[in-house]
Design a binder for these strands. Structure first.
Lengths: 243, 243
DNA sequence: CGATTTGTTGATCTTACTCAATAATCGTGG
DNA sequence: CCACGATTATTGAGTAAGATCAACAAATCG
């Protein structure tokens, strides 16, 4: 097994990077936002940030580590809703409700930044650019989900996995990490569940992509050897389904 | 073919019903909102309300008729994103962008209400309850898309169709129309595309559900004979995937 | 009324699922 | 630090749900 790379990155001013459009806010506004909404919290592997049904109070941003959102239906079947990496916001789906509508657990030791929703609404009423940014963030999430609709409705197993990996690659790159060499924080089961595939299919596709010289997979360590080919297979419009 | 029922319903004060929480706004605020955002527009069958790539200016609410949202990928393949019925808001996915990210066309002669986005942001900055409502509306849409994720990722063809019909039923009921007897405004092809199924499969499932005495299908006229059984098959959590 | 689109039904094929066995990895405690 | 049990991942064989291809029927539209 390779030496594990450092895949957890912290953002200095969490709210600044995550919920604000830095350019559009004055330094004073940024300070105000930071003072009101920034609250750190460590989360051990397999521990929940929040659980389905719990009272909704806050949005969360990932500072380091990785978070999995999922819900369980009446038959007890789990559905993985998404994975969140450093710099990403989650809990947005609960705003319309008094309670969280899914559960969020840490896939590895993580740190999250809590943004009390009451503060978010209060501040965004005062700071026009913050409101605009919140609307955009929510809208982008809707758009992302719609692109995912196409993935599930039209793409083959190979296309789904390729799209997924390409998307992870982009998100790591955005966080100034290697876009071609990273560790998958989630299990094969979680990947399959998320992409609407059986675990075995995920395993087989990984093997096939490796045989074709596109990937090098060693457990959870992943290297993309031919990003171009990977994108070709994914051929997902605009090459991204998560902001 | 049966005598077509009147399936188009107008809402008196469009913005009031659609984008506001009536109870939480004062009459003066409602008047203000209505005066700023309400603009009607008729749309003939197969005509677009907006098209992918066009400059984003407004959100829209359906007053009467039915609207289909879809996008086309680089291979020219269409993906149906959603169907919108009277009282429902669409165009939310474009807020994060300067241009619309999908196209919206009328499935039948329709009337839509235009809500210039600049007015929406301006008003929601002033009226706190309007901002809260916008956040909730966007959040609910995210939640709906996530429930759809489960449909595409886990459900069989029969479950998908049943869930779809049950959902339509609920939406017609909300608009004070019969929940068990209505006209499908979209083609079988559109239904299949939306649900990730081949047209032939849609046709076959309709036939099967009819043979089991659950439905009566006559072209686009639909009667749900056994809503209980339909819901059992759908067994989708909370029995709804669109608000 | 004829042409074109849309919907239905049947036969065959394919992709990915299921079941099953084995291998590798992880986590825990001695 | 190593050994053990438990979880997670891989690979193979057989199956099934739904796709595709093809032919025909019905509805819609000009």
């Amino acid at each position: 097994m390779n030496k594990p790379q450092n895949h957890t990155v912290t953002c200095h001013a969490c709210s600044l990077n995550v919920i604000c459009v830095p350019q559009s806010l004055t330094p004073e506004e940024i300070d105000l936002v930071d003072s009101k909404v920034q609250r750190g919290r460590a989360v051990q592997r397999n521990k929940h940030v929040f659980e389905d049904g719990q009272q909704f109070t806050s949005l969360y941003a990932v500072r380091s580590g990785a978070i999995k959102a999922y819900s369980v239906d009446q038959n007890g079947e789990e559905q993985v809703i998404g994975f969140y990496l450093p710099g990403e916001l989650f809990g947005l789906d609960a705003i319309h409700n008094d309670a969280y509508v899914c559960s969020a657990k840490a896939l590895e030791t993580s740190a999250v930044c809590e943004l009390p929703y009451a503060q978010v609404t209060e501040l965004s009423a005062k700071i026009h650019n913050l409101q605009a940014h919140m609307y955009k963030t929510l809208s982008k999430e809707i758009n992302t989900d719609q692109q995912f609709h196409r993935l599930l409705s039209k793409k083959t197993a190979e296309e789904r996995i390729s799209t997924f990996l390409q998307n992870l690659s982009e998100r790591y790159q955005r966080r100034k990490l290697s876009p071609t060499s990273f560790r998958l924080p989630m299990s094969r089961t979680d990947i399959g569940n998320y992409l609407g595939l059986a675990v075995e299919t995920v395993s087989r596709v990984f093997t096939r992509l490796q045989q074709n010289g596109i990937l090098k997979v060693d457990g959870k360590e992943l290297q993309i050897l031919d990003l171009g080919k990977l994108c070709d297979i994914a051929h997902s419009e605009g090459c991204e389904f998560r902001s």
